[in-house]
């Protein structure tokens, strides 16, 4: 993917209409390069989750423009017919809680995505095992999600987000339930995966422990973004 991984220009989102309307996003401008991890921080109610939902194509923005790679996906209206396929193939999601599917084992939780995209079961599982190895949870491949620790579950969730090699990963407070060591480990993994697979990653966070690790940070306040440089601190192993 050349140029920008993600580009957002003049994005707006208004919930509801009339007296009760909420302008959750007023003026969002943002770029994330392939292989880059940026932080998105802001006070509660500032519009962080709303932004991820727009970018994740689960709610429709009100105005503006969103580009993934070299394809405009939204420009005052969706430019893509099949939003499900968009989510499945081109966007990876990581949430505050892992939300693994309890009735699938760890491998199939990840392999499900390539399978949904039409890949044969064998190839999908092979891909899942590679990712689990890369994230140091290969030894838990046949376990059930409920048998994993919180940190392991979150790594499996990251593996799932990466399963279809999406150009974009959206992470909403991925480290919230983790202690600082595990939180930093998750960010380290996201950085490594971003570089390895050339993925543009947005991490929404409140987490003081991980904020210093970003090289670039977008602040969002009252629905408007502004960019600033981060410390870009290296994370020790």
């Amino acid at each position: 993917m050349d140029g920008f991984g993600i580009r957002i220009e003049g994005l707006r989102k208004r919930y509801g209409a009339g007296d009760t309307a909420v302008d959750a996003l007023k003026e969002v401008n943002m770029t994330v390069a392939p292989g880059e991890v940026v932080g998105l921080i802001g006070p509660s109610g500032s519009g962080k989750t709303t932004l991820l939902k727009c970018l994740g194509a689960v709610i429709e923005p009100t105005a503006g423009r969103m580009t993934l790679g070299d394809e405009v996906i939204y420009d005052g209206g969706w430019k893509i017919g099949d939003l499900k396929a968009l989510r499945r193939d081109r966007i990876g999601f990581v949430f505050q809680a892992p939300y693994l599917i309890p009735f699938l084992d760890v491998t199939d939780n990840i392999a499900l995505l390539p399978m949904l995209a039409g890949r044969p079961n064998g190839a999908a599982r092979q891909r899942a095992l590679e990712l689990l190895e890369a994230l140091d949870v290969g030894h838990r491949a046949r376990a059930e999600p409920s048998q994993l620790s919180g940190g392991e579950q979150q790594r499996v969730a990251i593996a799932r987000a990466l399963a279809n090699q999406p150009p974009v990963i959206l992470a909403d407070e991925p480290t919230a339930p983790l202690d600082s060591e595990r939180a930093l480990a998750v960010i380290r993994i996201l950085n490594r995966m971003a570089q390895q697979y050339n993925t543009a990653v947005i991490v929404v966070t409140h987490d003081e422990k991980i904020i210093p690790t970003f090289r670039r940070i977008y602040h969002i306040r009252d629905g408007s973004t502004h960019e600033e440089a981060g410390e870009g601190r290296e994370i020790a192993d």
């Binding site: 994740g56 989510r87 499900l112 949904l116």
Partner: peptide, 10 residues
């Protein structure tokens, strides 16, 4: 789980 399945494009 169904919401997650839908989100990931099921």
């Amino acid at each position: 789980e169904i919401a997650v399945l839908k989100l990931i494009g099921t």
